[in-house]
Amino acid sequence: MKFRSVFDIIGPVMIGPSSSHTAGAARIGRVARNLFDREPKWAHISFYGSFAKTYKGHGTDVAIVGGLLDFDTFDERIKESLEIARKKKIKITFREEEAVPEHPNTAKITVGDDDGELELVGISIGGGKIEIVELNGFKLRLSGHNPAILVVHDDRFGAIANVSNILAKHQINIGQMEVSRKEKGQMALMTIEVDQNLEDHVIAEITALPNITQVARIVD
């Protein structure tokens, strides 16, 4: 079941005009912002499928940039996000891709500054609900049926056990978990599907652990 909550159906509260192309896009942008953990200096945004054909009409561009500026779906500043980004000297480029994506509403975002870069691919599956399907070249094999978090961490012993201990303490059951890394001892990634939505304080507790760089909800 892709949709689990009644508030996926009646909700979200949002700035119009499109839940998939505006609210969903804002959420994809915001996940990129949360994972990057700071305001980027630049962003390249590629639109695929229906996103590529209609992004101007739906405000997909302003919404995704609003998300990058950490605005929620109902934040009225979304409407002026391109102007706000320009004032903050954030360089933004958009591309309309011809390639046919697996899902019609697909966006790829690359953000960066002098200290680093991050690339993710997100899809907007309807009613404002999104999934992140790729991060920094890692394919995320999520069922999409359950809430999921992404934990970026240093590849050190104990890091995985610490995270699962916190989930256990809050009686949160792990349905599926995957760990991947680029090189031994370098950046690694835990993708964890859980049975309930994680509350903010649980996320904060995981973030505070040693060797954890970043925690973000990618499906909720």
């Binding site: 009646i10 909700g11 700035i15 119009g16 005009p17 499109s18 009613g127």
Partner: peptide, 15 residues
Amino acid sequence: VNAAMGTICATPTAG
């Protein structure tokens, strides 16, 4: 209101 980029509640979508 939705088309005017006002605030609405998606039920089930904005459109």
